[in-house]
Simulated assay, not measured.
Amino acid sequence: MFTSSLILAAQPTTPHTVAWSPSTALVMIFCNLLAIIIGYYAIQNPSKGPRLPIPQLASRKPFGVPELLATASFGHILGAGVILGLSNAGIL
């Protein structure tokens, strides 16, 4: 009885989410790329872990696995917020 009243109380507060579509995927990809670009310039001490097995940019600043995981995690958090905001605004 107690759990059903908690579920009923929390039900109107859950946000409406949109179904997956190519526009939703493009928003998430854009947010991840934006986060990687921000992280590339904002991370103070890069390359503390293993490097990526892909060719690096021609700059002096290496970009490794920890930096990629951190920026991609930030990009997914940013993307989830942007997708929820755009869906609540009616754009997506």
Rank of each mutant, 00 (worst) to 15 (best):
T3Q: 13
T3I: 15
S4P: 06
S4R: 08
S5R: 02
L6G: 02
A9H: 01
A10V: 03
A10S: 07
P12C: 12
T14S: 12
T14K: 14
H16L: 09
V18G: 11
A19W: 12
S21E: 07
P22Q: 11
P22W: 08
S23E: 11
S23N: 09
A25S: 15
A25K: 12
M28S: 15
F30A: 15
N32A: 15
N32L: 15
L34P: 08
I37F: 14
I37V: 15
I38M: 14
I38H: 11
G39H: 01
Y41K: 08
A42L: 06
A42C: 06
Q44G: 02
N45S: 07
P46R: 04
P46G: 06
G49S: 06
R51S: 09
L52Y: 08
L52M: 12
P53K: 11
I54K: 11
Q56K: 10
Q56G: 11
L57W: 09
L57V: 08
A58W: 09
A58K: 09
S59A: 07
R60D: 12
R60P: 05
R60F: 07
P62S: 03
P62G: 01
P62N: 01
P62R: 02
F63L: 04
F63G: 00
G64P: 02
P66N: 03
P66H: 01
P66W: 00
E67N: 00
L69E: 05
L69P: 02
A70Q: 01
A70W: 02
A70E: 02
T71Q: 03
T71P: 00
A72W: 10
S73E: 04
S73I: 03
F74K: 00
F74V: 00
I77Q: 00
L78G: 07
G79C: 04
G85E: 05
G85W: 05
L86N: 04
L86Q: 03
